[in-house]
Amino acid sequence: MTPEGISELISRVSLRDRAAFDVLYASTSAKLFGVCLRVLGNRTEAEDALQDIYVRIWNKADRFAVADTSPISWLVAIARNHCIDTLRARKPVAAELDQAVDVAEPSPNPEQSAVTRGEAQRLHDCLDQLEAVRAAAVRGAYLNGDSYEALANRYSVPLNTMRTWLRRSLMKLKECLEG
């Protein structure tokens, strides 16, 4: 489905069009379920999360019109944020550490557009300019929902040290991306 197609579906969902909601679900739920599975690490929680996420999408679809973003990014952000909030509400943190294993990363989607490829390449190039361990922390946080606490435990550094070097990495990343 083209981004324009998904945008139109989201707009129609904001007008309470249930047929559009069906199609939006059919075309995007697998991707968002993938987000839930990766971040939450178990199917039961992922299924509950996916329900909450589509309820949210139905209720918040009108917000998409003012969001300056591609439709799939908007949907993935809703899913990621919901899953991360769920993770953070979970206790104890130990569960997070257990699942913080590196998941094999698939090769980039061959169907993505040249523009997206360019942006992706730039992000990866800029991440590669960071120390390897810091780049891995940034990627891990984004893809697995690692918290500062989990990262500090994993790299055996105090929380503030973790925060300092992650923030410095983010500043370098920004200079590289926007420079």
Binding site: G34, S70, Q112, L123
Partner: peptide, 18 residues
């Protein structure tokens, strides 16, 4: 920042929901 990180979204592997 979300735009900056969007390319990583490619790495979430789609999986059909029940």
């Amino acid at each position: 920042w979300q735009q900056h990180f969007d390319p990583l979204n490619e790495q979430f592997v789609a999986e059909p929901a029940p």
